[in-house]
């Protein structure tokens, strides 16, 4: 475990530099303890693949106090007892602008790409980049595909993309360089809800295929940006 004071109001803890489900579980356990713990002066704990950063108010606590808290909490081997939230997310692969590219890249059929994509169980490692954007682990290496050489100016909300060994969902319309293999009609961000994003770190995802008609029905109900 490595601790760094990365800003006047932030302490970073690093647990190695390899994506690992065990490390991820450790991080979300710690994150939950800190964010639910009401510690004086601590604003929020945010995680990445192998890192956790505690943000705090430097007028109310200090790096040393936060570091000690992190070291103490890491020693206690609390595991999350509750099972993860599981989401079943529909995907219309007809909107996969790059699905033929991905299939050709691996010398397999589009049906095989879809089969490989829906047969895996994905873990939300963390949410980052933009509101509700999940960084997912668990994709089959057989469909891992490099990013596009030139990013698209605009990727539709709900687009499912592949970038190397990562897969993710664009919650809103944005520029993007991931290979788009499908689109979900589910709205990942509902700003007026108490829980404003559908997904949270630690959740699990199963994808299942739907046709265009089903896509449009759900997209309307969900108020997806179209």
């Amino acid at each position: 475990m490595q601790i760094q004071y990365i800003a006047e109001d932030a302490v970073m803890m690093r647990l190695g530099d390899i994506i690992d489900i065990g490390v991820h579980r450790q991080l979300i356990t710690l994150q939950k303890q800190i964010n639910n713990g009401n510690y004086l002066g601590i604003t929020e704990a945010v995680i990445g693949f192998t890192t956790l950063v505690v943000y705090f108010d430097p007028m109310h606590t200090s790096h040393i106090t936060v570091e000690k808290l992190l070291r103490d909490l890491s020693k206690s081997d609390l595991e999350i007892s509750s099972s993860p939230t599981v989401h079943h997310i529909p995907v219309c692969y007809d909107y996969g602008l790059d699905i033929h590219y991905v299939a050709n890249y691996h010398q397999i059929t589009v049906e095989e790409v879809i089969e490989l994509h829906i047969s895996a169980v994905y873990t939300v490692y963390f949410i980052g980049f933009s509101p509700g954007f999940p960084f997912l682990g668990g994709m089959n290496d057989k469909i891992a595909t490099p990013r596009k050489a030139a990013p698209r100016q605009s990727v539709e909300a709900g687009s499912i993309g592949i970038a190397g060994k990562q897969t993710g969902i664009y919650p809103g319309q944005s520029p993007g360089g991931w290979q788009i293999i499908g689109r979900t009609p589910v709205n990942l961000v509902k700003i007026n809800n108490e829980q404003p994003t559908l997904l949270q770190s630690g959740d699990q995802i199963h994808f299942y295929p739907i046709n265009k008609k089903e896509f449009l029905e759900t997209a309307n109900n969900e108020g997806l940006e179209q």
């Binding site: 970073m12 980052g128 960084f135």
Partner: peptide, 9 residues
């Protein structure tokens, strides 16, 4: 680098 938390500055 594996994606990690970042902040203003």
């Amino acid at each position: 680098l594996l994606t990690e938390p970042v902040q203003f500055g």
